[in-house]
Design a binder for these strands. Structure first.
Lengths: 190, 190
DNA sequence: GTCTATAATCAGATAGAC
DNA sequence: GTCTATCTGATTATAGAC
């Protein structure tokens, strides 16, 4: 039940981080939303940064699990699946994207073994699929693999998703299809 | 000279907004960086939000001027030019992208005549070029024009640019070429 | 472990002299 | 218009009872 409580805290923090970002999210708010006192939250996480880091670790572990459990398929299929999964998470407010600027928070993550292991494993698997897809002539071989990797990661904080959602003209499935198309097929006609 | 001072303040704020975001940027910091006292800054801008809004207005007016002064060319050429200009600004730290979450700041911008006029004019011009390019079969006609527009706007805060820059493996021109390629031609090989 | 209450700090905004 | 000094409120974090 301690584990369950911590999970509830992380889940709430994750949602608020996705909605408002690290600076705008307050610890009071997280505690109130979970339904506990702030001091109780601090028994679980020793700082706001620790809490945010825990949220990042959790989403990274989810990504790790997703990548591991993908059924065997062509590399391009895997890459598309990852992009889709990432965008689904984001549209559901489950993607706690941190400001890429906050250096102390980033330093904390870079020192976190669980986070780094997840990041490494996911990046290596994606890197292998990207290289394979390029060899097969399915991914543009002129793009450095690192640029492809970052482009896929960037789907986790693509503002196009929320702008289109706010517009209210399309449902989530349509929005994801559109961004999938512009990401893989590009804006230019084929 | 009052105008010049205000310009200096806005320029500094713009840079800091690009570097750290609205929440992390402090008014103390802006004032110190300009070389004036905080109270003096408040004689020019009545709140931190006003200051950020002024920075957004300025960049919007720059975009407006850029679009207006583009020499006549095929619509696809214009769209590519805009995307490139946007990314150049961003890489130079001159693109004060606001967190899309801050609602009071967004409300302020939506109520700002100068900002809205710039946004409207730019959006209408881009919309016309997008429609023309689709008619010519140069932009994917299956993508709604609004999705294309948002995708172009999103280049102003694309994290791929700064990640690749941080990597240090490529210079700015190469980075922009890569992101231009993934944006217009897509990740998939042609 | 949870709570109430409080300390400590930081940042936005202002007062008032010059 | 600029400054120094200060106010005010919000927020992170902790103390100490239960």
């Amino acid at each position: 039940m301690l584990q369950a409580r911590e999970d509830a805290i992380i889940q709430t923090a994750s949602r608020l981080l996705a909605e408002k970002g690290f600076e705008a999210m307050t610890v009071d708010e997280v505690a109130a939303s979970v339904g506990i006192a702030k001091a109780s939250l601090y028994k679980h996480f020793s700082s706001k940064e620790d809490l945010a880091a825990a949220a990042m670790v959790r989403v990274m572990q989810r990504a790790q699990a997703y990548v591991r459990e993908l059924p065997p398929a062509a590399p391009m299929v895997q890459l598309r699946a990852i992009a889709r999964w990432t965008m689904e998470r984001m549209l559901r407010g489950e993607m706690p994207s941190l400001p890429s600027q906050n250096s102390t928070l980033r330093a904390k993550l870079m020192a976190d073994a669980a986070y780094m292991q997840g990041l490494m494993e996911v990046s290596q698997q994606l890197g292998a699929w990207i290289a394979a897809a390029q060899t097969l002539g399915q991914i543009n071989p002129k793009l450095p693999a690192i640029a492809v990797l970052y482009t896929l990661y960037a789907r986790a904080c693509d503002p196009v998703l929320e702008f289109l959602k706010m517009g209210g003209q399309h449902d989530e499935a349509q929005i994801i299809d559109m961004v999938m198309s512009s990401c893989f097929e590009g804006l230019a006609a084929r």
